[in-house]
């Protein structure tokens, strides 16, 4: 893995247990690019929420989930690709009501909602059963 704008990519099996490897991947990337703790937290949170969504809501999909990362113009650019999925547009409003009482609150959709608030240029593309999520994070 080299610094600069070179894209690094890795394929992960469709399992929650793959998260450890996903975080090893982001950790190595963060060390090379000297990403600060605050940005690193958001990077891990965004990747986890999207990766686990792909696993939980598409457990019967075939093939692994590919992750690509690069740095360009002081931004981290991340792509997550599911090669076999129905449409699940992560840019849509999750309808989260943050003002419900404790008894009424649940966490369904909360992860995607949080990431929508924390990342920039969140995009979703679906074609020929291939879902691609991409987002950017400023390095500072």
């Amino acid at each position: 893995m080299n610094a600069g704008t070179e894209t690094v990519e890795k394929l992960f099996s469709r399992s929650i247990q793959s998260l450890e490897g996903v975080f090893d991947f982001t950790n190595e990337f963060a060390l090379i690019h000297r990403i600060n703790d605050k940005v690193r937290y958001v990077l891990d949170l965004a990747v986890e929420e999207f990766f686990t969504n792909m696993v939980k809501y598409n457990s019967k999909g075939t093939g692994g989930i590919q992750m690509r990362m690069s740095v360009n113009n002081n931004e981290i650019i991340v792509h997550l690709v599911d090669p076999d999925s129905e449409v699940f547009d992560v840019t849509k409003d999750r309808g989260i009501d943050l003002h419900k009482s404790l008894a009424e609150r649940n966490v369904g959709g909360l992860g995607v909602f949080l990431v929508q608030k924390l990342v920039e240029n969140l995009h979703y593309h679906h074609q020929n059963r291939i879902s691609t999520i991409s987002f950017r994070l400023p390095l500072e």
Binding site: D44, E48, R105, N106, V107, L110
Partner: peptide, 10 residues
């Protein structure tokens, strides 16, 4: 902590 962790606390 991620939303999954928030879920167990909730």
């Amino acid at each position: 902590i991620s939303s999954a962790g928030l879920g167990v606390l909730l």
